[in-house]
Design a protein around this nucleic acid. Sequence first.
DNA 1: CCACTGACGAGTG
DNA 2: GCACTCGCCAGTG
Length: 114
Amino acid sequence: MKPAGRYERIYAVIRRIPAGRVATYGQIAELAGLPGHARQVGYALSALREQSMVPWHRVVNAHGRLSLGRVIPEGDVEQRIRLEIEGVEFDADGRIALGRFQWRPPRKKRTPGG
DNA sequence: CCACTGACGAGTG
DNA sequence: GCACTCGCCAGTG
């Protein structure tokens, strides 16, 4: 095992995700300074531990679906429960409306119109 | 070093 | 929306 310091970048971004919001792998990768390394994000999450203090349940794929079930049985169930507690709604197909729940990082320069 | 795998994303038809 | 393809890169055998 390695300290995986590079993952710190990824974890730091995930910790920035507020409750009731979700972020995509690609989005996290980009915010972490690793644009295009969405895979690396998922890989980092796989190495996560509960003591990591990382809201891993707020991470979903670009389709608004959960992919945790690929590693842990019923893992996606746990994720969904955690999200629903925070107010995140799921579609009948088990998908999240990213248009309403995707996290939007605070930009230093936001549009004057909004 | 080579081949295969893995919590993914974007482009093409 | 689905199937197929390429890119990304750390980990394991």
